[in-house]
């Protein structure tokens, strides 16, 4: 589903590359943690998958396509197959919960009929059945992140990318979010989650890929966060 072949990403300016000859392969339906210290290149790797960035050298394949060579006008189509969740939720403050979720469908041209059907389903899935009419600032952080996940999942993407989705949440709320991501993964969606949260990684055991200075230093099928060297 996602394959990196000797991917190096160098940002403008001098200094070491953010990713250095990274090769990895993530299958359909997997749940993968991307861990590593701050600045190790986790967000860079995720942005390469979204084609927000292009690799300096190497190749990135997503859903069978080599996306680093993809024409710009095809990028929106690629992104429709990928849902994205961030640490800071990124909800639209002047829209209700349901409108926030519906927005992701409207702007890619889904019909109102489909929206009316799928948005309530998705809100129910994330446990916000009765809160569709609330404004984002009337929700707790955990609930806001659920809205963001609903928005990322409403188009039923093949891949869900989460960049520190529990970074702003307390441990208990984080567990709820992890259960939700687990449910989404159960539906066959590939989940890639960058995180600093050792408690979560140790509690919900999944495949762990650890980066350090832009290099893969560990890739374990069911790893823990604090691998002792």
């Amino acid at each position: 589903m996602i394959r990196f072949e000797k991917v190096t990403k160098r940002y403008a300016g001098p200094g070491k590359p953010a990713l250095d000859q990274v090769t990895l392969d993530i299958d359909k339906g997997e749940f993968v943690y991307l861990v590593g210290t701050s600045g190790s290149g986790k967000s860079t790797a995720l942005r390469l998958v979204l084609r927000e960035l292009r690799p300096t050298t190497g190749r990135v394949h997503v859903a069978g396509k080599e996306i680093n060579r993809m024409a710009g006008w095809k990028v929106p189509r690629l992104r429709r197959q990928i849902g994205t969740v961030f640490q800071d939720f990124r909800l639209l403050p002047n829209k209700t919960v349901a409108e926030n979720v519906a927005f992701a469908q409207q702007v890619i041209g889904k019909s109102q009929r489909e929206i009316n059907k799928v948005v309530p389903e998705t809100l129910e899935l994330v446990g916000l059945k009765d809160k569709g009419d609330r404004m984002p600032d009337e929700l707790s952080g955990g609930e806001q992140q659920r809205v963001a996940i609903a928005r990322a999942f409403v188009n039923r993407p093949m891949i869900l990318i989460a960049d520190e989705p529990t970074g702003n949440l307390d441990p208990q709320t984080s567990v709820g979010i992890m259960n939700l991501l687990g449910d989404i993964n159960e539906t066959g969606t590939t989940v890639v989650m960058a995180t600093h949260d050792n408690g979560i990684v140790d509690q919900f055991t999944k495949r762990v890929i650890e980066l350090e200075h832009g290099k893969v230093i560990r890739d374990e099928a069911s790893g823990s966060y604090g691998f002792q060297h």
Partner: peptide, 15 residues
Amino acid sequence: REIGIMRLVGASTLY
């Protein structure tokens, strides 16, 4: 903000 989200969810440039 809207534009950022539209790009992420795959709205076309024209849209």
